[in-house]
């Protein structure tokens, strides 16, 4: 059996694919990669289908061992990388030997990184996805984040195409970031009902990503905004929705957010921007730019 053994998972590592669609009405979160574009790139580098599952690492710092040969690629937050003690490059694919040790350092910028393997991480498809649902305790590897000692099967290899210089060349990602990062938001939800001062401050404040960030959401730090006094009925929410809880600190929901919530909403960040947002570290500065649909 070809497999990847987790020797050290880093801060938080899990198996993710593009996420779970179709089960929100049963209370199931979307889950899936926080940075979908980086997952796609990692899969592309090893000639996987875009639906293949990969490892998502948080702040790198992981170590793995190959059981059997494997073709690996790395994308997302760039980390220093060593394969059997030799430096290797980010955003490239490598054929590694049986027993090879892959060491991924902490990234200098960004948060989440992806390790894709040709054939994909072969965990069972649960409710249409291989993504880990850590709240529900299913999907991914044993329904939980990875621990040292976990052995992840690698899916069947397709007829191995001989890798050409071209497919091995690094593919550029749009990872350049202005400071503060401008995040487009389609204002909506209860936006029009917030006081004018709240709306203005929301768009004019340079927000900082708070230390309270995980796969469920990120809390933003800035001057507290006056929220609505009324209680909201629970309603559907999704990754990208920006909520304003009574404490006045906006929360951007991410992939593992539950499918319903009860806080008033300022709007929603478009899906294509969510990856960039999820790569912002605590302390990073961002501003929202309202756009008309």
């Amino acid at each position: 059996m070809r497999a990847l053994e987790v020797l050290h998972p880093g801060t938080y590592a899990s198996v993710q694919d593009r996420g779970r669609i179709g089960y929100r009405a049963q209370g199931v979160a979307q889950a899936g990669a926080l940075d979908g574009a980086a997952l796609e790139l990692a899969n592309r580098l090893v000639e996987n289908a875009p639906t293949a599952a990969a490892l998502e690492l948080t702040f790198g710092g992981a170590r793995l061992r190959a059981h059997g040969t494997a073709r690996l690629a790395f994308a997302g937050a760039a980390c220093a990388l060593q394969i059997d003690g030799r430096p290797a490059q980010w955003r490239r694919s490598y054929d590694v030997a049986d027993g090879a040790i892959v060491e991924i350092a902490v990234p200098t910028d960004g948060v989440v990184s992806y390790l894709a393997v040709h054939g994909g991480i072969d965990v069972p498809v649960v409710l249409g996805s291989r993504s880990t649902d850590a709240v529900g305790g299913f999907g991914g590897y044993a329904g939980r984040p990875l621990r040292a000692g976990d052995v992840l099967s690698i899916g069947e290899q397709l007829a191995m195409r001989h890798a050409t210089a071209d497919t091995r060349a690094s593919i550029e990602e749009g990872f350049e970031m202005a400071r503060p990062v401008a995040i487009p938001i389609c204002v909506g939800g209860e936006y029009a009902r917030f006081p004018v001062a709240t709306r203005r401050a929301f768009l004019e404040t340079t927000w900082q990503v708070g230390v309270q960030r995980n796969r469920i959401g990120m809390r933003l730090v800035g001057p507290p905004l006056a929220s609505l006094c009324e209680e909201m009925n629970s309603h559907a929410v999704f990754p990208g929705v920006v909520q304003l809880p009574p404490d006045g600190a906006p929360i951007v929901l991410l992939a593992d957010a539950p499918p319903t919530g009860g806080y008033p909403k300022l709007g929603a960040v478009p899906t294509v921007v969510l990856g960039r947002l999820a790569q912002l570290r605590p302390g990073a500065a961002l501003r929202f730019r309202a756009y008309d649909r």
């Binding site: 909506g188 309603h235 929705v241 909403k265 709007g267 929603a268 960040v269 478009p270 649909r293």
Partner: peptide, 9 residues
């Protein structure tokens, strides 16, 4: 109302 690019409420 619409909410973002994905949802109609």
């Amino acid at each position: 109302a619409l909410l973002g690019e994905r949802a109609v409420v």
